[in-house]
Design a binder for these strands. Sequence first.
DNA 1: GGTCCTGTCCAAAGCGCTTTTGTAACAGCC
DNA 2: GGCTGTTACAAAAGCGCTTTGGACAGGACC
Lengths: 341, 341
Amino acid sequence: MNLKQLSELLGLSQTTVSRALNGYTDVSEATRARVRAAAEAHDYRPNTRARALATGRSRVIGHVIPKISSHAMVNPIFADFIAGAGETYSSAGYEMLISVVDLAQEEKAYLSMKRRGLVDGLIVSAPRMNDPRIALLDGIGLPYAVHGRATGTDRQYSWLDVNNRRAFTRATDFLMDLGHRRIGLVNGLETMDFAHRRRQGYEEALRARGIAIDPNLMRQDEMTEGYGWRAARDMLAQPDPPTAFLVSSVICMLGVRRAIEEAGLVLGRDVSAVTHDDQLSYLRDDGAVPAFTATRSSVREAGQRLARMVIDRIDNPEGPHVQELLEAELIIGRSTGPAPR
Amino acid sequence: MNLKQLSELLGLSQTTVSRALNGYTDVSEATRARVRAAAEAHDYRPNTRARALATGRSRVIGHVIPKISSHAMVNPIFADFIAGAGETYSSAGYEMLISVVDLAQEEKAYLSMKRRGLVDGLIVSAPRMNDPRIALLDGIGLPYAVHGRATGTDRQYSWLDVNNRRAFTRATDFLMDLGHRRIGLVNGLETMDFAHRRRQGYEEALRARGIAIDPNLMRQDEMTEGYGWRAARDMLAQPDPPTAFLVSSVICMLGVRRAIEEAGLVLGRDVSAVTHDDQLSYLRDDGAVPAFTATRSSVREAGQRLARMVIDRIDNPEGPHVQELLEAELIIGRSTGPAPR
DNA sequence: GGTCCTGTCCAAAGCGCTTTTGTAACAGCC
DNA sequence: GGCTGTTACAAAAGCGCTTTGGACAGGACC
């Protein structure tokens, strides 16, 4: 059933049927009701492609996953973020298009998306320091919003980020309030903007209390369970081991906990640990008192809000850029306690 | 730059330019080269929407994420699967569209995708027992391929699945060869087809050697770290505890390992464990000898192949259905050893 | 010379919508 | 009665492609 057939069936012109369904006021309410009923009865849906061609807007928003050589960079965050964004899109009448693109082809891919009229806007993920994509997209003229910030760029752009610096400052303060003085940092890769900011927050808090920053207590790597384990194990084996850890993700934290337990120590008593928790649905902590003390910020919610942000930019491309800084909650769980004396 | 402008620039008709670029033979090679060069020079890309409207094919394949009330069901598998499928799509000139849909609206969503001409085909994920979606999609007439199988349906359809039954039979046999007789099963939710099949494989292997099946050694739940921990802890606390575990995912396995270590036992010596490993990129095991003995099958590869499968169905909708059963490898790691006597 | 290919190219229709630009019909007003 | 406004509909253009159905020139063949 297409518009032509529906209009013939109703004895009306395509114009009238189209305008009736799209809420124009130059259609009488009686006619509109009749059209609506017929559309409903025959389950008529306007063809997306034709509508897109006629309006010049595809109502599709693109997400790009960069691929390095043969491996796509899949982030544990990805699934929940997508789910959040997808919820906003579907309630706003947008579709989400995901494209796996060679990292080296990323520039071309954005341009091609614009040229082909594939998407109305983009979400930019995992910004790196001095990320070149921002200038690029401004040049192309495709609305976008960034998940995170790109330190080093002085352009204006729309972004949403967690206040990673503040979160880690607070976590560090919290541990110091409990009497901890030697705090190990099990960070993500510091080429990633968020990890860089977390270290800043950590160092800032230590400096504020006049505690020396010890490079032996700082690690960075991709956030796997194994990395968490190795990092914590090594630091605990040092002459003057940390009494607490600051960890960048729950997956890492699982490894940190293992290292602590293997060392014959008890988490939350002998050694404390705070992790950042993105509230990933498949890692959720279902206890009454959470297992881990955490700086918590839902990545799904970030997805929802960022999706809204691109849509707003599409609706008003010349509008002012919007920045949203989400504060992470500090949730007390069973993984922290007073420093042993 | 659109087709009209390009053709005017070349002094050719739109027809000729279009046919030159699309490889038709009624264009001389000299002209084709000239057209190609101009297209290249001006970075011309045919507008996707116009082409889709003209050809009646969108070159988009849909993936649906069902949403239960306010929570999308996000599977840890999801990200890697998508990445795999995305790789195939981008090299085959397809795009991937992901739609978050209320579980109750799923039927409508498929129909709407067809009616709106949004996608050329679909991937169906996480089939349940007697899954109604198969009959539904056959009725709608949208090509699709299923990730997994739906026990209980006698229709023919195209699917790709891991041989879960065989994988768990082999793993059980392997443990029994090492002398284990009491083997705990830490399974996923058995409403999921794959979990159902894994239990079958486990029970079959036990029966084949005349070992009684003990309901006290079988658990099922959503596969979190916490669930793995609780399941293993509880079973180990039983009067006649298992000497080995069969675990449904690496995340669960992390919990199982923790329970074993907390009980003062050593994994791979006092207690053995085999897990299924989907080779998720963010849980990869980077040691020389893997930490876990595992039935291993890459979900990313599954994504790649399944994407190819839908594309084939789109190209030849009346062709015979294809089924692909991937055998999981049994990889020996450090988590298994002879049963203690 | 006429016929029949063959190799190249093109005009125009069509995909299914939206939107612009009318155009009747009717009412209100002097 | 003539003018202006308003309301409710429709004809037709246009979005940017692909595809159908020629058209035309040149060579081969009889």
